[in-house]
């Protein structure tokens, strides 16, 4: 848009309730649109400028800092109930720029750009010299640990065969020598006990996602694996208003068409074996 001489922005306190409202809408937008990793929560509002918008409304130009929580992105737990990832677990932060339109009392996200980055190794060492740092997700040990854990889980499962969706976090622990991994899975149309070729299994139309935590411990002459998975109820996903005014396809997955349950279930159910 051409620059309009004399157009000035309104200065607002970063902790002003109106700014916070806009920032919370921005964080909700992140959690509703990101399809990998963990939910984020608001940590600090860095800057805010409020521009008049023609013919009506105002645009909040925001810079915000977020922190990673321990809730997987497809976990239906409200982010307010999610625990913030602590420094000793190697916290991850997000730096975001947003433009949020306020019109008729309603906030709508017009623009979003976020970068996330883990805390520095030095910072983690300061608070916990012995704590393991985040490991690359393609590390050989990480990939092996996930494969072993998922196989163990499927072997003990008397239901669907679960396929790997993503590895979301990993740490190499020196003592005892072990690999800690967190990964997401999804149910397929195969029965776990009858699978011969996992490549032929297809994800269910009505997706059921799960989130697993596993530790693979190296031992003399072998290894031990412990894995626990939390399965999430299939969640109906509502279309989100988009910047161009159109209704987007569902955020998480267009194949999810399950109507909302009459009696909403608990946020998550722990099912499946602990191996």
């Amino acid at each position: 848009a051409p620059h309009i001489p004399g157009l000035v922005y309104r200065e607002l306190d970063c902790d002003d309730p109106e700014t916070e409202q806009a920032a919370l809408v921005a964080v909700d937008y992140i959690n509703n649109h990101v399809l990998q990793g963990y939910k984020h929560t608001l940590n600090q509002i860095d800057k805010v400028k409020v521009w008049p918008r023609r013919p009506m409304g105002e645009v909040f130009e925001l810079e915000i800092d977020t922190l990673e929580t321990t809730c997987y992105i497809r976990d239906p737990t409200p982010v307010a109930n999610c625990t913030v990832r602590q420094l000793m677990e190697h916290a991850v932060e997000g730096d975001c720029d947003f433009q949020v339109l306020k019109q008729d009392g309603q906030f709508t996200v017009l623009f979003a750009k976020c970068d996330s980055s883990p805390d520095s190794a030095e910072d983690v060492r300061k608070v916990c010299p012995q704590c393991p740092l985040l490991a690359p997700l393609n590390d050989t040990k990480v990939v092996h640990a996930v494969e072993v854990a998922l196989t163990a889980f499927n072997t003990q499962s008397n239901g669907s065969y679960f396929q790997l969706v993503e590895v979301s976090r990993a740490q190499l622990v020196p003592l005892p020598p072990s690999t800690y991994v967190e990964f997401a899975v999804a149910a397929t149309d195969c029965v776990a006990a009858e699978v011969t070729d996992p490549a032929k299994c297809n994800l269910l139309a009505e997706k059921q996602y799960g989130f697993c935590k596993a530790t693979l411990t190296e031992k003399v002459g072998g290894e031990d694996v412990a894995v626990t998975c939390t399965m999430f109820q299939t969640q109906p996903v509502l279309p989100q208003p988009q910047p161009d005014g159109t209704e987007a396809s569902p955020v998480a997955d267009s194949a999810v068409t399950a109507p909302p349950p009459a009696d909403p279930p608990a946020a998550a159910l722990v099912v499946g074996p602990v191996v």
């Binding site: 200065e11 607002l12 306190d13 970063c14 902790d15 700014t19 916070e20 929560t41 608001l42 940590n43 600090q44 509002i45 860095d46 800057k47 805010v48 800092d65 922190l67 913030v84 420094l87 916290a91 932060e93 805390d119 910072d123």
Partner: peptide, 27 residues
């Protein structure tokens, strides 16, 4: 009469509108 010399009134704390408060911890 002894008059108390006028003491300049200290200005109130300067409010920095931004950045806002840290809700958890700063990385």
């Amino acid at each position: 009469n002894v008059a108390q010399p006028s003491v300049p009134v200290a200005a109130g704390p300067v409010v920095r509108p931004c950045p806002g408060r840290i809700r958890h911890f700063k990385i």
